[in-house]
Design a protein around this nucleic acid. Structure first.
Lengths: 166, 166
DNA sequence: CTCTATGCAAATCTTTTGCACGAAC
DNA sequence: GTTCGTGCAAAAGATTTGCATAGAG
């Protein structure tokens, strides 16, 4: 049903795919500890930089660029380097704790994988509207049936025009 | 119905939004001329670089990075500079002739706005599946009703797992 | 002739990587 | 004491911008 093309291979990185390891975590402050346990279980080490990053991730759970997260971390640990932020975000993504999305132009944004939602981005005013997972239940079912494709509803952005700008 | 957040303004660029000026164009080689007319109508000038870029865009209509498009253009005009490619893609996007999308990591990909489709990107193998517009009709209706948001189905990518990797 | 588009170079912005040292276990 | 994580510097990749000139109208 409908044209289907298969194109070039590696447009997306080689990251191992971990659907939602962390999506069952509760919503309190010791989510941080839970995430740190995950890290340790994976043979990783608990460092102050990692704890701080997790804290700012759990405190403000909307989409934040690596730069913004670094700024937050720096309020507590001024010497944490950007490369550390990036490396840890990568690691946390591998563990399924955070996810990133590319919303239009500009840097990637990171958010907790547990906050399951998609993004609507208004092309006129640039504002971002979050949409809960289940809004995509129907689409999800259709794509599964038609294309055999299982969407990860936490990772995408739809561009369009918001109510105010319409 | 469902949590709705409004967040930070300028995550997406300031590009004026032109839904689908070119979506009614036919599918032949003088699409190029039509696009050039659009350009001229907007006070622009018809240059060899622009004609060449439009030609390669219409010849291979799948997603191509700016780099790939430049390579194609260079087969005819070896001296066209990357900055010219970027500037013209920007201009053509403003006119609604092309659109770009961010598929996972890596550079943005450009395609004709008239080839209306979304992208499914497999997080495991990285392959890209194109999905025709109308697969999103239901979602489109729901989002319109629930959020007042009109999606542009030509501009997004859904991450997930394809049939082969599932 | 006027004004736009181009080439070139350089800058910018985001993200990645190599290496030596310091910290966790 | 090993091994992993971090800071630093530097590179890499993608895109943007300033400026003088060539080219379109």
């Amino acid at each position: 049903m409908g044209t289907l093309f298969r194109t070039r291979p590696p447009l997306v990185g080689q990251r191992p795919y971990t659907p939602s390891v962390a999506s069952s975590l509760p919503a309190t402050e010791d989510d941080v500890e839970a995430a740190l346990s995950l890290l340790r279980a994976a043979g990783g080490r608990v460092t102050t930089a990692r704890r701080a990053l997790l804290e700012v991730l759990y405190e403000a759970s909307d989409h934040r660029t690596a730069e913004e997260l670094a700024a937050d971390v720096h309020e507590r640990l001024p010497d944490v380097h950007m490369s550390t932020i990036y490396r840890n975000l990568e690691e946390l993504e591998r563990l399924g704790v955070v996810a990133h999305a590319h919303l239009g132009h500009g840097p990637a944004t990171y958010h907790l994988a547990s906050s399951a939602h998609g993004h609507l981005v208004c092309a006129r005013c640039g504002w971002t509207t979050e949409v809960p997972d289940r809004a995509f239940a129907g689409l999800s079912r259709d794509l599964k049936r038609t294309f055999g494709f299982t969407i990860d509803p936490r990772h995408f952005a739809l561009l369009g025009v918001c109510e105010g700008c319409g």
